[in-house]
Design a protein around this nucleic acid. Structure first.
Lengths: 200, 200
DNA sequence: ACGCTGTCATAACACTGTTATACACGTGCC
DNA sequence: GGCACGTGTATAACAGTGTTATGACAGCGT
């Protein structure tokens, strides 16, 4: 039983993983310091030494959520046609939506103020944005370079796609999207901003 | 000093108004039963007799939020060109965004999970949806009838506009939309789903 | 060997939503 | 008029929350 050094970063990751599990099963409401502390085999102070308090833990969960969102988008675009194909922008949108449906609690923490006192720190927000929105910008730039799509600015095209994907996912998670075939509607609506920039 | 009957509904409205004020100034985190009770000149029980608890108050705030959102959309479309003009769909989107920016706390209660234990009751959700999304459907139907826009289904057109407006507003409230001129971008992105259905 | 620094558990504090209890008040009935 | 009743209210208690202060302990550098 040779316990490795167990660096501070390792322990942080461990606690975040536990918190993520609680978040997934019981929602943001079940996230109490005492609970995740005992689940991690320690005392309440553990969270304070590792994260400085609940907002700090919230920030870590926020970052973890964006990491997972980025992963979901990444795996979706990996099975899509090669760079330059507008289909990749659609795949990213589908990955975005898939994450929201798979991890609604994380989604609420990231976009819905689900943790009472917590607002994400500016750098954390910027990093999350870069890891996710950056993928959309890349795909858009490739399409512009390949000439499959036309637009003044790759960022603006990417933003349009992002806004659509987020609106779709957010409304669906909120239970406000009363449609018979949501999947079909999702495809139609995600395709719209792409078709608007089709080369012809 | 002849106190009028002060019906139950009146008192409910009064407390909701107080809660809305607290929500606007201190955010969802400042919404405590004791606080709004004392602000209303009563005891904690007040909230329980009027709403049955905090989730009940949350439901009332949720409904109030949709009432205000509907009002914001309504006033925006009132100064727009007459029915049948696609400009009306844009106006509704602008009203949607204006509400989100003016009342971000309400927006979080309605579309995030800003009140810890609360999930909106199904009828409340349906009513809110009808009061807001219904306006979009109406405007879309008028455009289809006037022949200014073409689409298979008015609802589908309306949904596309709604998704765009919501995505834009939600991302902006979350502080994730890093653009120089947000207003200009908002106009561009809101116009996209409308232009996609232009008659030609 | 000493002191320092950082981590930890315990306990307390102020606060939260919720619930049970007891009291006041208005109404209907005899 | 007087009395039971039911409703709304306030008080107090309960379990739980995040946070903070206190004291004990270990590891490390001088």
């Amino acid at each position: 039983m040779t316990e490795p050094p167990a660096t501070l970063e390792d322990r942080r990751r461990h606690v975040v993983e536990i918190a993520a599990q609680v978040l997934a099963t019981d929602g943001p409401h079940g996230l109490s310091l005492r609970r995740i502390a005992t689940l991690a085999g320690g005392s309440t102070q553990l969270v304070y030494t590792l994260f400085g308090g609940k907002p700090g833990l919230g920030d870590a969960l926020y970052a973890e959520g964006f990491r997972r969102l980025a992963a979901s988008m990444s795996t979706a675009v990996d099975v899509a046609p090669p760079p330059g194909d507008p289909e990749r922008l659609l795949a990213l949108g589908r990955g975005y939506r898939a994450f929201a449906l798979a991890e609604p609690a994380f989604f609420s923490v990231m976009f819905g103020r689900a943790i009472p006192g917590f607002t994400p720190a500016r750098p954390t927000r910027a990093a999350g944005r870069a890891a996710t929105f950056g993928q959309v910008v890349t795909a858009a730039r490739e399409c512009l370079a390949a000439g499959t799509l036309v637009a003044d600015d790759a960022e603006e095209l990417a933003r349009a796609c992002w806004v659509t994907a987020h609106g779709l996912a957010a409304l669906e998670v909120s239970g406000l999207l009363a449609v018979d075939d949501v999947d079909a509607f999702a495809d139609v609506v995600l395709r719209a901003p792409v078709e608007a920039h089709r080369a012809r």
